[in-house]
């Protein structure tokens, strides 16, 4: 390595790391804001999440014999679809730069790789937090209006959806965080592999393959372990509000599993970004 890592800049009058980070943040935000179809992608994510949530809520009926449906989870089914768009969004935020060569401009402007990646992660987190909250709230609201019409009434022991209830609030907040973590997973993978198609293939593969494989695994123990490490199945256990003891993994622990996946992806991406010629 030609660059001794110990060398600090001659002048610190520029305002320290916080100042650097602030500027990088602002730059990343401008980049994201002006990238054209990024806003459309986020809108699509919200729309798809709500639409699929509505569709599911409309389709599932609770017959008089009773049903074991978790209404909160039902209303939030759209997250399984919306996450794909969020993943694309996160991947494009990085691979778009690699595809055009702009990453070199970015790294020339902000040579500290950690700062770049952290700033990107922070912006993505903020943006997905906002759109995810909108999507989740709209889904719950739609469920609140649609589900009672399908038999999910007090007569069948279903209260109307309300964030005032602990488990519902947990599912709502958790679903938003789930989307954020999916975005960070996408960011990490895209930083590591650079190419959009590959990155999206990997992210969607990670998300979708586990549940597909779990279906055919015949051994209950194996099945449970697979569900415990699957980023999607484990992560979405945060949406459960009933029969918690039957889940392969608890709600927060499940979200933690996804967080570990995202952190691992970011770590690998960050290391490669450091090591690799741009």
């Amino acid at each position: 390595m030609s660059l001794p890592s110990g060398v600090r800049p001659a002048s610190t009058a520029d305002g320290g790391w916080v100042g650097d980070f602030g500027r990088a943040l602002r730059a990343e935000w401008t980049k994201l804001r002006t990238a054209g179809d990024m806003g459309r992608l986020l809108l699509l994510a919200v729309a798809l999440t709500v639409a699929v949530g509505c569709g599911t809520a409309k389709a599932v009926k609770c017959p008089d014999v009773g049903c074991g449906q978790d209404v909160v989870r039902l209303a939030l089914t759209g997250v399984t679809v919306g996450q794909a768009v969020i993943a694309v969004f996160a991947v494009l935020a990085v691979s778009g730069e690699y595809g055009t060569g702009m990453i070199r401009t970015t790294l020339a402007a902000v040579p500290n790789r950690t700062t770049v990646l952290t700033a990107k992660a922070a912006i993505l987190t903020t943006v997905v937090l906002a759109s995810g909250t909108a999507a989740v709230l709209a889904s719950l609201l739609a469920g609140r209006y649609i589900l009672p019409g399908n038999g999910f009434t007090e007569a069948h022991d279903y209260a109307s959806l309300s964030l005032a209830e602990g488990p519902t609030l947990r599912a709502a907040v958790g679903s938003v965080l789930y989307l954020v973590l999916i975005a960070l997973l996408g960011l990490g993978v895209a930083t590591a592999v650079r190419e959009a198609a590959t990155a999206i293939g990997i992210v969607l593969g990670l998300l979708y393959l586990f549940p597909v494989v779990t279906r055919v695994v015949n051994d209950p123990e194996w099945q449970r372990h697979l569900q415990q490490i699957s980023p999607m199945t484990a992560g979405l256990s945060i949406q459960a509000t009933i029969h918690l003891d039957e889940l392969p993994i608890g709600p927060w622990a499940g979200l933690g599993v996804l967080a570990v996946w995202a952190a691992a992806a970011l770590l690998v991406g960050g290391l490669l970004l450091h090591r690799r010629d741009a």
Binding site: T56, A59, T77, V81, V88, V91, E195, I200, L204, V212
Partner: peptide, 29 residues
């Protein structure tokens, strides 16, 4: 756009399968 296209095709082939096979939706759907 490779990213969007890949996501769209994967999602359109795999997602309906997953949703349908998960058992959450009623069989008719």
């Amino acid at each position: 756009r490779s990213g969007t296209a890949v996501a769209l095709v994967i999602a359109s082939i795999v997602l309906p399968f997953l949703l349908a096979a998960s058992g959450v939706l009623p069989p008719s759907v």
